[in-house]
Write a protein that binds this DNA or RNA. Structure first.
Lengths: 281, 281
DNA sequence: GCTATTGTGGAATAATTTATTCAATATAAA
DNA sequence: TTTATATTGAATAAATTATTCCACAATAGC
């Protein structure tokens, strides 16, 4: 499924004919099996060379490579017999709204495991676990996710730092030991404040984990470890909500992975005890 | 799998080099993906034309056709294998953690619509829509949800107020007009700070919406409108994550309902325009 | 034993498919 | 506006695949 998800994730950074091609492929992925690059170009109404360039832009060696990947994806999907429901229905009653949102969320959550390999997730968890200190950064709706992650890291006895002011985030970064980690959360991966922070951190040779939408971005390129979220193409409002929840879900997953470590469980127990004392008073 | 079985079935009616080729393919079907006809010929030690003839003898149109068929067979087989493995995954694997969390989230999201009637949700949305000002409050992990909701209300041009300091929240409440609304978010519904705020707000005859876990609680009892989240009974860590996401989901739902109003859509457009200007700079 | 017949396999080559180059055009930035 | 950058497709180069054709071997018939 990865190849199709990859295309879906890049939809909005494509040019006109690339977009036409992408749409066609997504709609007719099952036909790809029998298309040569020329046939595909004719079917879409663009040139054969554009088809090849599209493949290379996506990171494939050439057309046969993409074709094979898509064929595999189609076979995998049909083998698993997972029918994707259409998210694009009219918004109406509350129930419909909820249905749509929940469908989008469910799909997005599922996809998280497709686009983020278990290996990468484990590496990320390991980095967080070993770090002296973890600086979190996120702007807009991602700020909420960063703030939440700070709480959770603190619960585990890990020094998570977060401040909503980008200037202060930089100052915080200045104080970090080399064995610290940055977790940068952004939808587009193009937020200027976050990028500034990233550049600074790289100079200091700090480890950087990036969490962005699934597409090439400066933020992702500059990170040691790339994590991604993926949403389906729907209404923009809906998309924002889904992306944010997906970011949060991924962070929660990392948190749960950390919780599996016995040392961290102990810290959690401590934490709960302290909270208990607080409530008594 | 069909293509590989087909080859196996023909094994004894093949000539020498055909047999060599067939054996190689059966042993290395997973490598076929990356072989051209020439490479395959070299690997087996026969000529490229023999490879092509072999394909045609088996009934395929040519080499790419056979290659595709074998690749599909390999993918199908490995997918099925993965499915079987899923049933017996080791405890603690990332996939299993994710599975568990996602299951809990999905159930919890679904349940939201069972325990919160459409009517109540609409009333809540209406209250928020008509309010001069909306004061949000939440402690611990609910604070994140409150902060997020503040952002979203502001996007819609609604004056959402939030401060993490309970004392300041009280001071904010003191400034509110009678036509203001409080949205109080808490898991247990027993947080002392929130309850204090609620009592104060009632004296001022402000409207109060409560969002707590589904159980009787002081907070819920004292509110004009009761909203609930519901989680399944599992591991406590998991439960916390699920509750928080459920709270957020419910808030997002209210936000989406507000988005349906044309006036609010206009506000959103304004908001996006302003954000666009910001990015330019 | 010696052709004729049939079939196999590979070199050479034709046909097709894919990849690259380059110039024209469109788009964005200054 | 001009300049710079990116996009696109026609032409062409490169690679891959398919066919032809001939050498050679095995077998059968004379």
């Amino acid at each position: 499924m990865l190849s199709l998800l990859k295309i879906q994730g890049m939809l909005d950074q494509l040019s006109v004919s690339e977009r036409k091609l992408a749409d066609f492929i997504l709609d007719n992925s099952h036909l790809m099996r029998d298309y040569s690059s020329q046939q595909l170009a004719d079917a879409v109404g663009i040139s054969q060379s554009s088809v090849v360039k599209f493949c290379q832009k996506l990171g494939y060696k050439g057309y046969p490579d993409l074709k094979l990947a898509i064929t595999e994806a189609v076979v995998t999907a049909s083998t698993l017999q997972r029918e994707q429901q259409d998210v694009n229905t009219a918004l109406g009653s509350v129930a419909q709204l909820a249905e749509q949102l929940q469908l989008g969320l469910t799909q997005s959550f599922r996809n998280l495991l497709s686009i983020n390999s278990e290996k990468t997730l484990k590496q990320a968890a390991r980095l967080l676990d070993k770090a002296d200190c973890i600086l979190l950064a996120g702007c807009g709706h991602s700020a909420v996710v960063a703030a939440d992650m700070q709480c959770r890291l603190l619960e585990l006895g890990k020094l998570g730092l977060y401040h909503s002011d980008p200037a202060l985030s930089l100052q915080l970064a200045r104080t970090l030991t080399p064995n610290s980690v940055l977790l940068l959360i952004s939808d587009s991966g193009q937020n200027a404040d976050i990028l500034r922070l990233e550049v600074f951190a790289r100079q200091r040779k700090l480890k950087i984990i990036s969490l962005t939408r699934y597409q090439t971005s400066a933020q992702s390129a500059g990170a040691d470890l790339q994590l991604f979220t993926l949403g389906s193409e729907t209404d923009e409002q809906l998309q924002q909500l889904i992306t944010q929840q997906a970011q949060q879900h991924l962070c929660h997953l990392l948190y749960l992975m950390l919780c599996q470590q016995p040392a961290n469980r102990q810290q959690l127990a401590d934490h709960n005890q302290v909270m208990g004392l607080l409530e008594k008073h």
